[in-house]
Computed example of a mutant assay.
Amino acid sequence: MLQTSIWEFTPLLLRGALITIEVTLAATVAAVLCAFLSGFLRLSKSRFLRLIGTVYVEVFRGTSLLVQLFWLYFALPILLDIHISAMSAAIAAIGLNYGAYGSEVVRSSIVSVPKGQYEAATALNMNPWLRMRRVVLPQALPLMLPSFGNLQIELLKGTSLVYLITLTDLTYQGMILRSYDSSKTPEIFAMLLFLYFILAYSFTWVIRFLERRSAKGRA
């Protein structure tokens, strides 16, 4: 009976998994961009720019992702008459939220590069942008990968909230199937666990591959 149930559930769950993957990949890109931008802002010599970066990080780390999703999807249309799709709201909220956490990864990794590297690049008459691109980031990026890998898995799990704003992701499809036949709840949630594990393991494998490549580059 279990095998039959699994085959019955699989098409809808796989359809939801595709939405989950789409949200995860797009939100990851947004989170990385936000992490680097806010990380650089927090390292700026300008007090105003540091303040902007700090406010962004503290606001999005200090509030719930669920509340942020509701604000973007439900509150903005009411308050500012700004209407965005559920997919856009999900990508924006998740990207901004995990980008705030990634900001500290970027900042701490750049700060951990030995000061002698900065001094050597300055002695070679490199401007700040060239120094960052050619000297600092190649050394800081390998340090960021393990922490970014952990955030990637957390981001994937965070996508399970997007069904609350009507996005038909993996969790949404599981809840719909459960509402049709609650007696199959164990099978449905077993499939959800299995599919989330497969997705998480796949992203983990990619991060580990990148870590091995970066280790070879350092060698």
Rank of each mutant, 00 (worst) to 15 (best):
E187I: 04
Y163K: 05
I188C: 05
T28P: 01
P186D: 01
T185V: 14
I19F: 00
L161T: 06
I153Y: 10
P114E: 09
S112P: 05
V57Y: 00
L79Y: 06
A17V: 03
A100Y: 05
G99S: 01
S38F: 13
L155K: 11
G99T: 01
L177D: 01
E58C: 11
K216L: 08
P114V: 08
N97L: 06
L43V: 04
T166K: 12
V162E: 05
A219D: 14
L195A: 12
Y180C: 06
A140D: 02
V23A: 09
A120Q: 07
M87A: 15
V105W: 07
S64W: 05
L14Y: 06
V59P: 09
Q117E: 12
K45H: 10
K184I: 03
T168C: 15
F9V: 05
L33T: 11
F40N: 15
V111Y: 08
V29L: 12
A89N: 00
I21F: 07
P142N: 07
A92R: 00
V55W: 02
L137S: 03
S85P: 02
K115I: 11
L13V: 01
G102V: 03
L161A: 09
G95Q: 00
P138W: 13
G102S: 08
Y172H: 14
E104T: 06
T63D: 06
I188F: 06
V105F: 02
L43R: 12
K45W: 13
V67C: 12
Y98F: 14
L18G: 11
F40T: 13
A140I: 02
V59A: 11
G16R: 00
P138R: 10
R213D: 09
L65I: 11
T185M: 12
T168P: 04
A26L: 09
P142A: 00
F60Q: 11
C34V: 14
E154F: 08
Y98G: 00
E119C: 10
L141S: 02
K115N: 15
M1Y: 01
A215I: 13
A31K: 13
V57Q: 10
R178P: 14
A27V: 11
